[in-house]
Design a protein around this nucleic acid. Structure first.
Length: 580
RNA sequence: GGCCCCGUAGCUCAGGGGAUAGAGCGACCGCCUCCUAAGCGGUAGGUCAUAGGUUCGAAUCCUAUCGGGGCCGCCA
């Protein structure tokens, strides 16, 4: 049940009736007609811009349209008043029964309240994390993991068919470096001193891998040339790293549906297929690139390479797919991988990358555009840096030094719920400060706590009522007579609840899970405020002497709790039943 | 040099064509005999970086400029 959608439908019907009656010309585009909550609640419950949007194409004064529309809307028994205001806004007041019905709908649907079918039949692939399998996940990966997982959950809630996917970069030079690093740890496990040369991965996490290699190979690989052991150790170490990454993701409650391997795609011949397909479109050619403007690299020299004409699909320059020695660039398997995704029948692709991959956005969009003939949109969400603070001091992370702060460090200190919520209370493209001290604070300064507390209060009311002998189970609350729920403060809370289905669609459409977090904060705030009004006006308390009246009021609280629970579910945060 | 993101209250940030631009923190003043005061109410605080443009209407869209960050052919 989406009350805003219902009323918009009523407005559109009324406009069509006006067309039929000759009050409006035919053929008007009503796509921009919106029904939304007014900025100022004093204006009414909902406002529509219909008259202003249609005035110009209809060749009429906005107020003329608004007056006629108002008269028609007022005839519907759901509309109490329809007033023309300002330049042509139409402010609507709705019958209290509609808001009460929202409470009923929330109780009937439970955590499914707000689910949408806007994504029905749309297959979406959300690729996220895709960290190199060369070490544990760090803080930056954590943000991408949380964002991608919440976005996937949001799209699912909005009715899409969602696949969570991880692309394993297990074919490039970095996994050779991993193999060499692991080999040194293998030597170490055999009592030799490791030589962690410059450029190898120095982290301790490879020590157990070295020991496992000793278990498997004993001393047989010692003092053998790299050509003997590289491939085997690479495979072994990559598998170990991937398992570590899966464990890290599990700490956050993130589970992937599909792991795609760069190595497998390369071996499958997909690269050649994809490049030939592009060549058939005239988008592959041999040529040379202009040197980058500004600071010229010292060793710049012109070389002929195989290039992808990405400029034909919106990129700024064409991009090399082959190095001058004829081997593939990193971009080539990416082309094959995205071609593979298109071929798997997805209708929309979403990639979540760190902001340092910003330079790849245009060329990947060009690839997907070319290979899907423009059918499949690719949205790339870049997550900005996370700055960690503790005791007022910034935490540094440096993968090279082996001293970077890992996902595990963060989750063990802050907990998965807190980590997830905090990382979602910011737009993906804004930098994020993560202060361990603030994030663990139990006060209203901490949004995680604040929202959790609101949910716990609802649970508390239900417990108290039950103890007092008032049935407050969902079935009873769902059947409660809500006509008692008429106070302006109670209707106000119901209105906030009514915004939830609309919020879900807006957030899903924009691929913006942070909107859920902000909405939950607002809803929690409304609930806390309403709770405190009970101090002054005892008639607003949830538990009253009369059981039936109590049940109506508790139903309202429970409806808010249901929405908080559903929203936290999307964010991957457990709703607290009590605070400790 | 080019491309991408950002610039909104003292601070951290929402809002991203619509009415008088919001929240939290910090400051100040109030609220517990009462379902959790782990909370609530109020006051103060703004040339929405700047300058043009589009529009009935711009913090929001476009252009330019300034400031911050990121990226920029054989690294992944």
């Amino acid at each position: 049940m989406n009350l805003f959608a219902d009323i918009r439908a009523l407005v559109i019907d009324s406009l069509n009736a006006m067309v039929a009656a000759g009050d409006l010309p035919e053929g008007l585009d009503m796509a921009n007609v919106a029904v939304e909550p007014p900025r100022d609640a004093a204006h009414g419950d909902m406002a529509t811009n219909a008259a202003m949007v249609l005035a110009k194409p209809a060749g009429l004064q906005p107020r003329v349209i608004a007056e006629t529309l108002a008269a028609r809307l007022a005839a519907d028994d759901r509309i109490v008043t329809a007033e023309v205001a300002g330049p042509g806004f139409l402010n609507l007041r709705l019958a209290p029964a509609l808001w009460q019905a929202v409470v009923n709908a929330a109780l009937a649907a439970g955590r499914d309240f707000g689910r949408s079918d806007m994504g029905k039949g749309i297959k979406v692939n959300v690729e996220f994390v895709s960290a190199n399998p060369t070490g544990p996940m760090h803080v930056g990966h954590t943000r991408g993991a949380v964002f991608g997982d919440a976005l996937a959950a949001l799209l699912d809630f909005a009715g899409h068919e969602v696949t969570r996917e991880y692309y394993i970069n297990d074919a490039g030079a970095q996994v050779d470096v991993l193999a060499r690093s692991a080999y040194e740890r293998y030597r170490e496990a055999n009592g030799l001193s490791p030589e962690i040369a410059e450029g190898l991965y120095p982290g301790d996490y490879l020590i157990p891998v070295g020991e496992a290699l000793k278990e498997k190979y004993g001393t047989t690989l010692l003092d053998k040339p790299e050509s003997v052991w590289l491939a085997d150790i690479r495979e072994f170490a990559t598998a170990a790293m991937l398992q570590m990454i899966r464990d890290d993701l599990a700490l956050l409650g993130v589970r992937m549906d599909v792991f795609s391997s760069e190595k497998a795609i390369t071996a499958s011949g997909r690269i050649e297929e994809a490049i030939e397909t592009l060549r058939g479109m005239g988008l592959i050619y041999d040529g040379t690139l202009e040197p980058p403007k500004g600071k010229l690299p010292e060793d710049w020299e012109e070389r002929e390479q195989t290039l992808f004409r990405s400029t034909a699909h919106g990129d700024d320059v064409d991009r090399p797919v082959k190095k001058s020695d004829g081997s593939w660039t990193y971009f080539a398997p990416d082309i094959a991988y995205h071609w593979d995704k298109v071929h798997r029948g997805f209708d929309q692709l979403i990639n979540v990358f760190g902001a340092d991959h910003g330079g790849y956005v245009k060329r990947l969009k060009a690839v997907v555009s070319a290979l899907s003939n423009g059918r499949v949109p690719l949205d790339i969400k870049l997550t900005q840096l996370v700055k960690l603070y503790k005791n007022g001091e910034p935490f540094k992370m440096s993968k090279r030094a082996g001293t970077f702060v890992t996902l595990r460090d963060v989750v063990e200190q802050a907990g998965a719920d807190v980590t997830r919520f905090v990382m979602l209370t910011r737009k993906n493209d804004a930098p994020l400060d993560f202060d361990f001290d603030k994030v663990l604070e139990q006060s209203k300064d901490n949004p995680v706590f604040y929202v959790q507390y609101a949910h716990a209060r609802v649970c508390s009311v239900i417990r108290k009522a039950t103890e007092a002998g008032i049935a407050a189970d969902d079935a009873t609350l769902g059947a409660a007579d809500l006509t008692e729920l008429a106070h302006e403060a109670e209707i106000g809370l119901a209105k906030k609840i009514a915004e939830w289905p609309r919020l879900v669609e807006i957030a899903a459409r924009g691929h913006e899970p942070h909107r859920v977090a902000f909405y939950l904060y607002e809803l929690a705030s409304d609930l806390h405020a309403h709770w405190n009004r009970g101090n002054e006006e005892t008639g607003l308390r949830f538990i009253q002497d009369d059981a039936a009246v109590s049940q109506a009021k508790i139903a309202l609280a429970r409806a808010a709790g249901v929405v908080i629970s559903a929203g936290l579910g999307i964010l991957g945060v457990t709703p607290a039943e009590e605070m400790r």
